[in-house]
Design a protein around this nucleic acid. Structure first.
Lengths: 230, 230, 230, 230
DNA sequence: GATGAATGAGAATTCATTCAT
DNA sequence: CATGAATGAATTCTCATTCAT
């Protein structure tokens, strides 16, 4: 994704009819990102893969960046949809651990579907601190989560939901993405999810509530026997 | 940090007598990054600010990327030094919460010193999944932490230290960096640190041990009435 | 007025029933030129402002240049009409100075109405040496002027009317346009017109005839002492 | 001379040594302008003709426009040098008519040397009202002229030298340029110069002074019979 | 006739890297 | 060793013009 200067204006696609073309361009971008890497994602290449001319590409996206933005929105929407589904009425019976695990798995599969894309999206997030976009996403997540928590009567440990949302969003995104990109040997996907779930549950949910469900079998790591002493 | 071609593999900085020049170049890069932004950090500009010619710059760094690598190492060293200090013999008496808080504050100040640099380092981490480098850092941190934990007899909840280190590293880096770059309104620096500390403590440390120190005054947030208790 | 290729020869506007559309396009062009500058005057923008589609625009004008040509003709017509009026039967009693002043004022007001347009027209005149068009205009002006001169019996100093017309046309156009575009400080509109009038009168009209009307109160400028006298 | 957006900064050539390269670029631009026309004067073409790479071109000129600016300055300098020469001490004995004629011939030969260049310079003058540049030139001309006028004791008719300089500059430039570009049939170069000289002399110089030198043999043109009467 | 989506050649500009001095 | 002028591949983006609907 070669970058020059980051211009301001971000025109939305002009016509409603040509959603097909817009989709083609977005999909082509993802395809290039996944198969050829960020450096290959030039306007010319994207247009070629999308089967349109550069001119057409620019008819719908005023900048190369605008494409990335659109993709970010699309992925955010995807994540929101997944969470709505997972935390919907039909799943109120699940334990917090089950629910959070389901969400983590959902997220992981979203990242897994297009790791190269999310790599670029994360880089973009660093390039231009996209506070507003992320904030909007956070708010949507908070709304969904709050609704679910209220419905299940789950007790939350955090005082400041906004801070918690911020911390959780950044932590989960970075961890999952780094995992998918680096594939650290010795850590399975399931194990990573377990770690995240455990971290989040204990960070977010009240102990009393957590106690209601069978605790994970996490055993102490160090020092083994000669424990604590005190 | 304008990028063209990722070119060949990244070589380490050439062995060089003139440490002064190398330092000058590294410092110049940081200065440019902080004051003029990533886009201004061209080889020519860096050389100019460092007071040397481009040619000389290439005498010491085979790639532009090599400079970034060197800076990453330098910052990692800085972090390690800080942790060694904070978790040293002299501080064994501290409670886990105090220790973790001290580490978080140390990290925050490292990021705070050069946010622009760390922004680029984080981007670089995404650009080329630098598994090995991060892994090496993690190992050093684990060593320091293990030592400290053993010395204080602290009980750890995690089974797999490597996974935990991975999760913690990514979570803390991403959260702090995003915080510094976005400066989300309504979240103070101290509050963010508290959140991270709380998350990490409960993720990492055994409840029994935590209980030994005054618990944080986190109050439940939601749902309001039909609260937990029962 | 962005230009790519000068392409083929310039065709005249296609014969069109819908004078309204043609006018709309011409007016839109002027509006864009005045309010958004030459660079904004793209076919798409002009069409948009005119309230038609690009396709329609091309129905009436084979080139973007054809629009400019049409506008040039329109402005020439406007100038001719103004001169005919000013130098008409009803104004034979005026002194040469009065007449020329009236013409200059008329021209100035034509330029003043659309300076941005005339800027482009002048540039176009340089881009493609539009000898024929200008020549035709000159001839019309000469006809009008000759008629007026004969009717008033004014004695002309020039031997070669064509050369004089050429010189006068270029001088007046360039001076007025530069004046309007640069607005040189310290020169009022009236002053500029006086200068031009004085220059033209003395260039064109016989001294004896000029003497008949009160001379301008131009005072000598230099050298100070050994002044000319009388 | 394809144009996109007119950026601001105009860096002067960096090094003094490489004057040769700068000159090569300027000369190449002129050559392209003269032989291939304005549309061919792209950065790539100019660089090629100059025998350097585009990169080098941009090392010395931050914009394509900067080249044009440099050429404008060069031509202005050329004109000033010519006038200094023509109106120098050695030529004080000449009559006003002779002097002005000499200047006009000098100018004509400057335009004649590179009509294509001056065409572009004039267009540029319209594109961005370059008031300051022209003003600076005018001042230099005024200085030279004033000196000469004082030395010869010539009486000037104009009250406002600045206005006069403005009018004269624009009139002469436009007329000569249009002449060279259009080559209107029936007007010889000498004739055009005579016209300009006559116009300027009568516009600028006091009649008494003009009378000192044999008047031009301009005969009345119209109306034929009822002539003015001597 | 009108529409406006699609086209694509082509222009400006950047910057990592080399190498003759 | 240091210098910094030269390189040129590569990229983004524009806009006149066409043509299927």
């Amino acid at each position: 994704m070669p970058r020059k200067t980051a211009k301001t204006a971000r025109k939305p696609p002009l016509q409603a009819r040509s959603v097909a073309t817009v989709t083609a361009i977005l999909d082509a971008t993802v395809r290039v990102l996944e198969k050829e890497g960020p450096d290959a994602a030039t306007t010319t290449r994207i247009a070629a893969v999308a089967g349109v001319s550069v001119g057409t590409l620019y008819q719908y996206f005023s900048h190369l960046d605008a494409i990335v933005d659109a993709l970010l929105d699309r992925e955010f929407d995807r994540a929101i949809a997944m969470m709505s589904e997972v935390l919907s009425e039909g799943n109120l019976a699940r334990s917090p651990r089950e629910s959070v695990t389901a969400v983590m798995r959902g997220l992981m599969s979203i990242y897994l579907a297009h790791p190269g894309l999310h790599r670029v999206l994360a880089m973009e997030a660093l390039r231009i601190a996209e506070a507003d976009r992320v904030r909007a996403f956070d708010l949507r997540v908070i709304a969904i989560a709050s609704h679910f928590l209220a419905a299940t009567g789950t007790a939350v440990r955090r005082l400041d939901v906004n801070s918690a949302a911020f911390v959780v969003f950044q932590s989960v995104r970075a961890t999952m993405l780094a995992y998918l990109l680096e594939r650290p040997p010795g850590i399975s996907e399931a194990a990573l999810i377990d770690e995240l779930v455990d971290m989040l549950l204990r960070y977010l949910i009240d102990d009393a509530w957590l106690a209601k469900t069978p605790p994970v079998t996490q055993l102490p790591f160090l020092p083994s026997k000669k424990r604590v002493r005190s």
